[in-house]
Design a protein around this nucleic acid. Structure first.
Lengths: 150, 150
DNA sequence: TAAAATTTAATTGTACACAATCAAACATTA
DNA sequence: TAATGTTTGATTGTGTACAATTAAATTTTA
């Protein structure tokens, strides 16, 4: 015999289709997958690409600064950065003025990747089937939500 | 000949702040963190919660069906489901009518969690500082983007 | 129907994510 | 300045994610 369903306060809210979180989770992973062909050609993972976006702009950043900008902690960044260091893409050294800090610096091989990555944003925009205006509006919206959460 | 590669058509596109993907990635992780206090009280991780949302509704689903609905593959689901099986939350058995399929079934301990989870959606909505109408519109928007990508 | 192709999970290996803890370096203060 | 507290990364352990491969079961086809 069937057990009657437990009466939730509002049963319909406890369904996958009612969730706001799931589309975020799923879109995030599908977007990462959409980057795959471009990133794989450069031997990069998506989080590594994000680190490069920051280093191409700033040349040098501490682990703490990278973590603040990407919302990632050292447990994620330290091994990721060590892998990128092994590939000679970046350097890791203590700040002589504050030995607690580790400065991540762009190396020539890492700088050279910027030219090869320059087409990626445009190619990704094409995949989204959205106008630049739509993309811009959505980015503003998401950034606002992120500010509420973080 | 191909498009000229070296200088990006628009250099500003290759910045973290220009990306649409990053807000999705960051919001997704921050949302998962926002669930933490509620899920930890039940001993659940976020992907395990998603599996339960489907099982509370459907009682039984194959690994393939779970994978299709959550956009996750067996390399992710198999170990996750084995952990949930160890907790007696669900059962795993081959479909006698097609021995390739594994049927995941809700067990009493898993069913009992539904009542404890029933308040989570409402509590999460409160954290978002958004009206139900806004949330609904955004969910529709994201679901549409997901359909484009998946 | 036997062989080939397809479907479905499981396995393997790499790379995140993050909570919790640790240790060193720096800052503060009594 | 010595003791206390804070900051910063690294480490450890658990749990996803996913590509690639494998193996078994089923379906299709010659």
């Amino acid at each position: 015999m069937e057990t009657p369903p437990i009466p939730a306060a509002n049963p319909s809210l406890l369904k996958l289709e009612s969730q706001l979180c799931f589309p975020f989770y799923a879109v995030s992973r599908q977007l990462t997958k959409a980057y795959q062909p471009y990133l794989q050609a450069l031997g990069l993972t998506y989080p590594q690409y994000l680190v490069f976006l920051l280093l191409w702009e700033h040349q040098e950043l501490t682990v703490k600064e990278l973590g603040e900008k990407l919302l990632l902690d050292s447990g994620t960044l330290t091994p990721l950065l060590k892998r990128m260091e092994q590939r000679q893409w970046l350097s890791r050294r203590r700040d002589p003025r504050d030995e607690r800090s580790v400065i991540i610096g762009l190396l020539p091989a890492g700088r050279a990747l910027e030219a090869q990555a320059s087409d990626i944003p445009t190619q990704m925009l094409a995949k989204l089937h959205m106008s630049p205006a739509e993309v811009g509006a959505l980015r503003v919206h998401l950034t606002h939500i992120l500010a509420q959460l973080a």
